[in-house]
């Protein structure tokens, strides 16, 4: 379980996150959604321990983040964070990189070798797995980065925009199914951010909607529909919550259009 209590995060003068209270249950896939620059990545980075909030705390499985060395190491062992733009070691092959990450998380070699093989297979990188990462296309790099998060078998995954970055349709399909499996079969807790809501209908248990550094809604897709009083597709529901005047403005625009 991930709990955020009154989290306020500043980089400079103005706060990027304001008094965020959030509880994410174990075995849930929660998506953070909102327009650009509203604090989605910052919220994930706070959960991941990259940032230290000026106020409030982050509690993961009952342990406060950065409270003691033992707690922080225990949290790091059960958490994996994948930023939207990771930096990959360009001279190592994809397979070496995945093995290195797996060993960092103390995954035994016998199971690790098999898991790496299956990940390379599912993301269609069997051949490229033995090439240096510098020779990969953007989409292939995204796949190997996603595989590195999956190879850790961490029960808590924090993924910043996992579906962006040049992932092809087969990669999107594979990732969708793996994430679903992780949540339903392995009881993993997944928090991911995305600027586009199309994929969330079938994936997310709950959705965090952010605007101006604040959580304006946190509910299931059905709950968000009743909150927004909109029965349309999820992107329209989100648009009504984030930009309540957008639809009104659009209606005005079409009504007031001069007839030719």
């Amino acid at each position: 379980m991930i709990q955020l209590q009154q989290v306020t995060q500043h980089y400079g003068v103005r706060p990027v996150l304001r008094r965020i209270d959030l509880t994410i249950e174990t075995g849930e896939l929660v998506a953070i959604i909102g327009p650009n620059g509203m604090g989605k990545s910052t919220l994930l980075a706070v959960m991941a321990g990259i940032l230290s909030p000026q106020h409030g705390k982050v509690i993961i499985d009952g342990m406060e983040r950065k409270s003691t060395v033992e707690h922080e190491l225990a949290i790091r062992r059960r958490t994996v964070f994948l930023p939207d733009k990771p930096w990959l070691p360009k001279n190592r092959t994809g397979r070496e990189f995945l093995m290195g990450v797996g060993r960092l998380y103390d995954i035994p070699d016998d199971g690790l070798i098999d898991h790496v093989e299956r990940l390379l297979n599912v993301f269609e990188l069997e051949k490229e797995g033995d090439w240096p990462i510098r020779s990969y296309s953007a989409g292939q790099q995204k796949k190997i980065a996603l595989s590195s998060a999956l190879v850790t078998r961490a029960p808590i995954m924090l993924l910043d925009e996992p579906f962006s970055g040049g992932l092809d349709p087969s990669g999107i399909l594979a990732l969708k199914h793996i994430l679903k499996h992780q949540v339903q079969q392995e009881r993993a807790t997944i928090v991911m951010s995305t600027p586009v809501p199309e994929l969330l209908e079938e994936l997310a248990n709950r959705i965090v909607v952010m605007r101006q550094g604040e959580v304006i809604a946190y509910d299931t897709p059905t709950g968000l529909r009743s909150l927004s009083q909109c029965t349309g597709p999820l992107d329209e529901v989100i648009a009504r919550l984030v930009h309540p005047r957008t639809m009104e403005n659009l209606e005005h625009y079409f009504q007031e259009r001069p007839k030719c």
Binding site: R76, L82, W87, E96, G100, L104, D106
Partner: peptide, 14 residues
């Protein structure tokens, strides 16, 4: 060898 961002920074090892 190093493992890049974020694994080098968020290493779970002591």
């Amino acid at each position: 060898h190093r493992l890049g961002w974020p694994y080098d920074s968020l290493t779970p090892a002591k």
